[in-house]
């Protein structure tokens, strides 16, 4: 049960998107998310949808993987839609439902917001699906490097992140083991109300934490024994270097940004009230 949790759910495939430099993917995803919030009419969203569909197609990630990413936000999506639909004033009143009035503006905001959220999550999960967690931390480290000058420990943060990612499966396995061991000793983890269940977690969490600290201590020693002394003077086995395809990706992104921005603002393309 506990093993189903996947973090940074990477989908391995040999696609053009997978091969891009992680920095390209991070920056382009950010730009894409920004572009979603600049649109004032339907044309922009149509443009964004086409762009996203092409990217998904290029990434060779099955559609159902992407849909899976949307599941956790369904509740959030519903709440956003309801609030926007019923509580936004402005424009002509389309229909009244008990005490709530649905206005033209409300319907418009609700629909736009839904599209935005869905595209936003899809775009972001496309990035995590096509980039290994380690490549992501590497990319972030390199991008945030200028922050070193204002004494932000960028290298250390990225090291912490990649070690955390490495130990997630190990600690999950350990949790499994401890749960079994405690069940074998008569611990009841299943029954009772929420408070009782929370209390039953204590005999699992305590040994888990003790062991995590022991591992941390061992790992720190092993890293020092292999001459780890922070980021200064360190070389990289796999340095990030931009390739031709990365520059092409940036160029495509720039074209998209300009086109989508102008279309989303100035293209006179309207369907009914949208």
């Amino acid at each position: 049960m506990i093993r189903d949790i996947t973090i940074g759910q990477y989908y391995p495939a040999a696609s053009k998107i997978h091969m891009l430099d992680p920095r390209v993917k991070i920056i382009c995803t950010l730009l894409y998310l920004i572009s979603l919030f600049t649109f004032k009419n339907l044309a922009g969203y149509v443009f964004a949808a086409v762009f996203l569909a092409v990217c998904v197609r290029l990434a060779k990630v099955p559609f159902k993987y992407i849909m899976r990413g949307l599941k956790p936000i369904i509740v959030l999506l519903l709440i956003t839609v309801l609030f926007n639909l019923f509580l936004t004033p402005g424009g002509e009143i389309l229909f009244t439902f008990w005490r709530f009035k649905v206005t033209e503006q409300g319907l418009r905001t609700a629909v736009y917001m839904t599209i935005r959220l869905i595209f936003l999550i899809t775009g972001a999960s496309l990035m995590t699906l096509t980039t290994t967690p380690n490549a992501l931390t590497d990319g972030l480290e390199k991008m945030l490097n200028p922050l070193n000058r204002i004494k932000v420990p960028v290298h250390e943060i990225s090291m912490i992140m990649s070690i955390a990612l490495r130990f997630i499966p190990i600690l999950l396995e350990e949790t499994d083991k401890i749960m079994k061991a405690q069940t074998a000793r008569g611990a009841d983890l299943e029954s009772g109300n929420i408070i009782q269940k929370a209390k039953a977690m204590v005999p699992i969490l305590v040994p888990l934490f003790v062991s995590a600290f022991r591992r941390a201590n061992d790992l720190a020693m092993a890293m020092e024994a292999r001459c780890y002394r922070g980021g200064a003077g360190r070389t990289k086995m796999k340095p990030l270097i931009y390739n031709r395809r990365d520059y092409i990706a940036y160029a495509v992104m720039a074209v998209y940004m300009i086109a989508a921005f102008s279309a989303g603002r100035y293209l006179p393309f309207h369907v009914w009230i949208f």
């Binding site: 967690p133 990649s162 990612l165 790992l219 890293m223």
Partner: peptide, 10 residues
Amino acid sequence: NPDNQIIAAV
């Protein structure tokens, strides 16, 4: 401990 001295994920 073999697990506690391997740092990278590959």
